[in-house]
């Protein structure tokens, strides 16, 4: 045996303990949320020091994530965004007044995931960095076989095996859906993530780790995810979340959608952002749907736009059914967003 292995950071531990039980993780742990938390555990107002990022969106978003129309409008400098500590519990995120008021879709996504106990324990950082649910990756007795791609093997076993719950947008090589509900929602705001050492990445760069298909995220070993930064919600912004699942709770959805509509005072959609989870090995944005909404009156043409939600679909043999769910969930989220209360004017 070599020298003592580097401890693995542990926040809520809900995913890490599961992997340890399955023999997918061992070794020492570094508790991040002890008496003196190693990552922020609060949601605080945050003002961008630099001007808001130009509409050029993160390249790592993949084919579906790089649409120019997808960009959020630059926020007026006086408005405050939110900095969500990586150690914030999901439950706290779901109930935070500023999140509920300005980022309803994110609050709903947080409030619907896992179970009450999981939400009370799991953290924002952990949700973004959790591992895939694929049985070929997780299970102990599967360990006697050639490991899957993510477990250090050469190929994705789900691709040729049981993949009923897997990707419908095949961004390969691993076809397990990205597990983070928050990631899908946060994409709608082009959120950024803050690493230790004050490095800031677009969220999309963190997700999926294209450089190494074995990984579910691109956080380098030894680094810490410290916080998520949300730009300010513009007045008139409205957002919502929808999911299709086999069971109501305690479930990774088959497909989930978050929609955000920015509406001008004249009632027309200035910008739209729609993201889907559960359909690819990272959450995706739907530029075709977004483009179809811009310039239309709020609430108009939602079905027509949502009909394009499966534009990127490239189903595997068993996941064709998710095409319908992509359209259905996108429409559901859009309808809810159109009916949602707008983000309030920020108090001075």
């Amino acid at each position: 045996m070599s020298a003592a292995p580097t401890p693995t950071p542990r926040a809520g531990g809900t995913d890490l303990m599961d992997r340890r039980r399955h023999g997918r993780h061992s070794g020492p742990l570094l508790d991040l949320l002890g008496v003196a938390p190693a990552v922020p555990v609060e949601i605080t107002p945050w003002a961008p020091v630099l001007p808001a990022p130009a509409p050029a969106t993160p390249a790592a978003g993949g084919p579906a994530g790089s649409a120019p129309v997808a960009a959020a409008p630059p926020a007026p400098p006086a408005r405050m965004g939110l900095r969500i500590g990586a150690g914030v519990r999901i439950d706290a995120l779901a109930h935070h007044p500023a999140v509920r008021a300005g980022f309803g879709g994110l609050a709903a996504a947080a409030g619907g995931l896992g179970t009450p106990q999981i939400r009370a324990q799991a953290t924002v950082g952990g949700n973004l960095l959790q591992e895939v649910r694929c049985p070929y990756f997780r299970e102990g007795l599967a360990a006697g076989h050639t490991p899957c791609l993510k477990a250090g093997g050469a190929a994705c076993h789900a691709r040729g095996g049981d993949h009923l719950f897997h990707a419908c947008v095949d961004l390969g090589p691993c076809v397990a859906p990205h597990p983070s509900t928050l990631a899908a929602a946060l994409l709608c705001w082009d959120a950024e993530v803050e690493l230790d050492g004050d490095e800031v990445w677009p969220l999309a760069r963190l997700l999926g780790a294209e450089a190494d298909p074995r990984r579910t995220h691109a956080l380098p070993a030894g680094r810490l995810l410290r916080a998520v930064r949300l730009p300010a919600a513009a007045p008139g912004d409205r957002s919502a979340y929808a999911r299709a699942a086999n069971r109501g709770r305690s479930e990774w959805p088959l497909v989930e959608a978050c929609a955000r509509l920015s509406v001008d005072p004249d009632g027309k959609v200035r910008a739209a952002a729609v993201a889907l989870g559960g359909v690819a090995n990272r959450p995706i944005r739907l530029p075709e749907v977004e483009a179809a909404l811009v310039g239309r009156p709020l609430g108009a043409g939602l079905a027509e736009a949502a009909a394009r939600a499966d534009a990127a679909a490239r189903p595997l043999p068993m996941t064709g059914y998710k095409r319908g769910l992509m359209v259905g969930c996108a429409l559901d989220a859009l309808e809810r967003a159109a009916a949602a209360p707008p983000a309030p004017e920020q108090p001075a």
Binding site: P135, Y136, R138, E139, L141, H145, G160, G161, D162, L164
Partner: peptide, 9 residues
């Protein structure tokens, strides 16, 4: 699955 493994035990 085709290897006799449970789909999610």
């Amino acid at each position: 699955d085709e290897r006799g493994l449970h789909s999610g035990p």
